[in-house]
Amino acid sequence: MPSTGNDKTAAAADSTPAATPEENADVIVRFERVTKQFGELTVLRELDLEVTRGEKLAIIGPSGSGKSTLLRLLMTLERPTSGEIMVDGERLWHMERGGRVVDANEKHLRRMRGKVGFVFQHFNLFPHMSALRNVMEAPVRVRGMDGGAAEAHARELLDMVGLAEKADSHPSKLSGGQQQRVAIARALAMEPEVMCFDEVTSALDPELVGEVLTVLAELARSGNMTMLLVTHEMRFAREVSDRVAFFDKGQIAEYGSPEKIFTEPEQQRTRAFLRAVLEPR
């Protein structure tokens, strides 16, 4: 079987996404037996996942398989029913106090949350603020950045996503693709270590998808940003990601390099899914 890349990716190139502790190269996110239930419904089942720093992980799978929930748990928008999530070596929902492990307090959560960024399917831009203010608001109000510096930084980011001249426009005046690009700039402004992209092109008209994918591809290419992308854009996933995880019924059914998953998937259900998704083209 052709192996790709260097040692650490080779070690994780088989189908288990969690490497053994000794081979623990800079893991930035770890899910340990994470289960999430909403009432009677179990959305994630004893999930194990490791993401290394700088990795671009594409998460694909049928609707309702738990992909978005995975990201939302990381962003603390939901809380796991059981299991542990580790970010940068520290527990997310628990902390150590006097040698014991207790529930995390607000201060700990805020600190951990600052390491993660999130871009939503429906953008969620603040409608009462201009694009520039959307991007500046958190750096100034949360990180206490100086107004002038925050503005300069925000303009830089807007320029990077190709919207420099739309800085003073309100979201209602922007197209879906433009809004999503502003949303990406807004998330980046907080300089997180891990970025979550939750089906960020699924709510866009087809002709607007490309401009957002371009930004994402550029982001993947240029930085050491760790990126988790839940997406239905298979071609994009294949081109941009280092690893692909195929989700089904709350668990990772298959995991590996893009080449492997897309050309020689091991599982029947992976094949069935890919066939259904890639066929009508």
Binding site: T76, L77, R110, G114, G117, F120, M190
Partner: peptide
């Protein structure tokens, strides 16, 4: 709800 979630994602405190 997405507005509150976006604000949480940007690490804003409940008061903010």
């Amino acid at each position: 709800k997405g507005q509150a979630e976006a604000a949480i994602a940007l690490n804003m405190s409940p008061g903010l």
